[in-house]
Amino acid sequence: MRTMLEVNDLSVSFDVYGGEVQAVRGVSFSVKEGEAVAIVGESGSGKSVTAQTIMRLISTPPGRIKQGSVRFDGQELLSLPEKEMQRVRGNQIGMIFQDPMTSLNPTMTIGMQIMEGLMKHQKMSRSDAKKRAIELLTMVGIPNPESRISQYPHHFSGGMRQRAMIAIALSCNPALLIADEPTTALDVTIQAQILRLMKNLQKQTGTSIILITHDLGIVADMCDRVIVMYAGQIIETGTKREIFRNPQHPYTKGLLKSLPRLDQSKNEPLVPIHGTPPDLIQPPQGCGFCSRCDYAMRICQTEVPEFTRLSDTQQVRCWLQQSQGGIRGGKGASA
Rank of each mutant, 00 (worst) to 15 (best):
E268K: 01
R328D: 10
A36C: 10
K331V: 11
T138S: 15
R132V: 00
A129L: 08
V88I: 15
L170S: 07
G232S: 02
T239K: 11
K131E: 13
D312R: 11
F29N: 10
V40G: 10
E42V: 13
G332I: 15
D215N: 14
G44S: 05
E35L: 05
S323D: 15
I149V: 15
S43M: 15
F156N: 10
R161Y: 06
R163C: 08
G63R: 03
Q86W: 04
Y295M: 06
R292H: 09
T237F: 12
I178S: 04
T3C: 14
R126A: 09
T107D: 05
K66I: 04
F156Y: 13
E76N: 13
Q86C: 09
D221C: 04
P143I: 13
L255D: 07
L270F: 14
N144S: 09
G326F: 06
Q22R: 15
E116K: 02
S48W: 05
D221R: 09
L197E: 11
E76G: 02
L197S: 04
I212H: 07
K240H: 12
Y295P: 00
Q282H: 13
D99L: 12
S13Y: 05
T205D: 08
H249E: 01
T109R: 05
P305E: 07
V31N: 02
V88F: 08
G94W: 00
D215P: 05
K253R: 15
G19K: 00
S311H: 04
I54G: 09
L137M: 14
Q86Y: 08
L197A: 05
I96P: 05
K257Y: 09
D73V: 07
P174W: 08
Q233D: 08
V271D: 10
G34N: 09
T109M: 12
L77V: 00
T276W: 11
P283S: 08
I114Q: 03
V304K: 03
G238A: 03
P81A: 13
G288E: 05
L280H: 00
G68T: 11
Y251V: 14
G232P: 12
A185I: 03
S265Q: 14
